[in-house]
Design a binder for these strands. Structure first.
Lengths: 339, 339
DNA sequence: AGTTTCTACGAAAACGTTTTCGATTTTTTA
DNA sequence: TAAAAAATCGAAAACGTTTTCGTAGAAACT
């Protein structure tokens, strides 16, 4: 019922002009101390707060960051958002989140909506479908408008923008080497289809480690899973055929599924088969046995991405066209699933 | 480099007035078919999209929903957001997410920021600190401004707004009864401190079930945990002293922690001790043994909340002051942790 | 006393829309 | 052919700010 207070209403109530009110509230010396105090008192009393939309229109900046990710019910992405939100909030920004649901079309639509004035810049991780199609026109359009983008995790190298990633190749390689050092001879990897860049890179790192050590490797050492929903039987067959003593999984879910299957087959984890998973989330911490993981530092990635974006937003326009790719160090969190 | 296209620029380029351009693009009959087509062609060619901020200011509505929750790295909240986002998106709304981090001050600040024009309405779950203080002035302020709020999960009954909750009392009661029917005699509950309303209600439901059956109950049957971080030793002591054959936990984390401790003590789950947890998330699905849970239907709650809010936003102002509390049915998901 | 400098405020433009109203021209009708 | 009606467009207000500029009166100079 009490209408939102505006400068205009204050001006009417106090018999001054709108400009006077505005200046008084911003402590301009153009206004006498007397009227300044009077107006500020009135504003405080009735809890005046400037309208954000009007400010956005005036200033041509919204102080909002658009986030587009495939899913939110996913520990890694949730941690990234948490990291973004934290630094964004500290610097006076708010985050608008849109989910692509791994769909190209939704990604495009959401981006279009946000790009029309709602936000100052993007932080995003691409949908699987986008990666599959290799269609990035929506990114290019936004960038051409002069709106900055920071990509993380699922990035595309060719884009002229900042990126925050982990070194998937190196992480997979060193995790594999870790297993080899522990005496494992026949290691398998449970990965995703190749168009998901992280899946591909992790598989390559895995191969590299094996090659360096002249360890056993053939195409049967690699399982590529399309949809995570019904991965159980695929993993089961893979494990049965392979008879591995070490498993590297590109996410927690594959790892814990494998672990359960192995235990059902009466194989001891980690004595007979060791397991390492990418992503250090809830599952790994509470599975039985607990899983050794490669921590992706989602919070850090989010924080870095937000800092990068805000830095670019607040620098005097894009004089500096040199884009940066930050590589976040992973860390091996040793738990029970490795000896 | 190519400045964002506006009505004004189109008008200049085509030597007509701004109003003509606006009308032409909206297919007004006031404009001749000829000029209409010409302008629309031009707009399409250079990919004109109206500026959202300007529209928001003009229409006095932003088509954005503000979400304030304690945490996002939390499966339940993530599912709720997912549910909200889905229906919001369908109806042309976007979501702005702010995290309180269980802090009263952050909740207040974030709400203030969003309430000043950035959004049309709120969907929120209160922080622990807010519940502890019982200070709801920020909610009242927003409601007094005529901005609708829909609360979920952690709600406060007295607030004049719509709410979406699960019947925590009934759910805890029926889960307890389930355990009793399975022949369990001495059941304990691992809950949270009382100011978290859901913890309190669930404990009450638990007591009610025991009372009805004249089952064993004393104050040692209840463990109230303040912070989830170091709950392990507390749970360990609780289990040791209690010697239970059934456990009801108010969240997955407590349940899986209890399960692990029990197994370390060589107690068979579910044969010797059965376990039921609130929240049907990842942990329960992949723990060993898998956990029987009370599904909170986070997605449903989010979808219902969003529908309620949008409905109220789009009704001709708040003629209808009768607020509704939707109770979402829980479902018992039986898994291995109960016989 | 006349000129200049301050002081304190208001008018108006700008941000990008939509919409109401008025104005001009063309077409229709009597 | 004059009047009425329709067609087509532009001006301007409005949303709520901030900021530049102008201006009136008072104070301070010469």
């Amino acid at each position: 019922m009490p209408q939102k207070l505006t400068l205009k209403k204050i001006a009417q109530d106090m018999n001054v002009s709108i400009s006077t009110v505005s200046k008084a509230l911003r402590d301009s010396h153009e206004i006498s101390v007397e009227t300044r105090e009077k107006i500020k008192g009135y504003a405080k009393k009735f809890n005046y707060k400037p309208n954000n939309i009007a400010l956005s229109l005036k200033n041509q900046k919204t102080k909002k960051i658009g986030i587009i990710i495939p899913e939110i019910v996913h520990h890694f992405f949730a941690t990234v958002i948490s990291g973004i939100e934290k630094v964004a909030n500290e610097k006076g920004y708010q985050v608008i989140i849109c989910l692509s649901g791994e769909s190209f079309d939704k990604e495009v639509v959401n981006m279009d909506m946000l790009a029309n004035g709602s936000i100052d810049g993007f932080i995003m991780s691409l949908s699987k479908e986008t990666l599959e199609r290799q269609d990035f026109h929506h990114l290019r359009e936004v960038l051409n408008q002069g709106m900055p983008i920071v990509m993380f995790d699922r990035v595309v190298d060719a884009m002229p923008c900042d990126k925050v990633i982990i070194d998937d190749f190196a992480a997979a390689q060193s995790a594999t080497e870790f297993l080899l050092r522990k005496g494992k001879k026949k290691i398998g990897i449970i990965s995703t289809v190749d168009y998901v860049s992280v899946g591909k890179l992790r598989t390559q790192g895995f191969k590299e480690a094996l090659n360096k050590r002249n360890a056993h490797f053939d195409k049967n050492s690699v399982l590529k899973i399309e949809d995570a929903e019904n991965c159980t039987t695929k993993i089961e067959n893979f494990l049965k055929k392979g008879d591995f003593d070490g498993i590297l999984a590109v996410n927690e879910l594959f790892a814990v599924t494998a672990s359960k299957i192995l235990q059902k087959q009466n194989k001891q984890v980690p004595e007979e088969v060791a397991i390492i998973a990418f992503t250090d989330g809830m599952l790994s911490k509470y599975a039985s046995p607990t899983l050794t993981t490669i921590g992706q530092k989602g919070e850090d990635m989010g924080a870095l991405a937000a800092n990068k974006l805000i830095e670019r937003l607040e620098s005097k326009q894009d004089i500096d066209e040199s884009y940066e790719t930050v590589i976040v160090k992973t860390s091996l969190v040793e738990r029970e699933s490795t000896p």
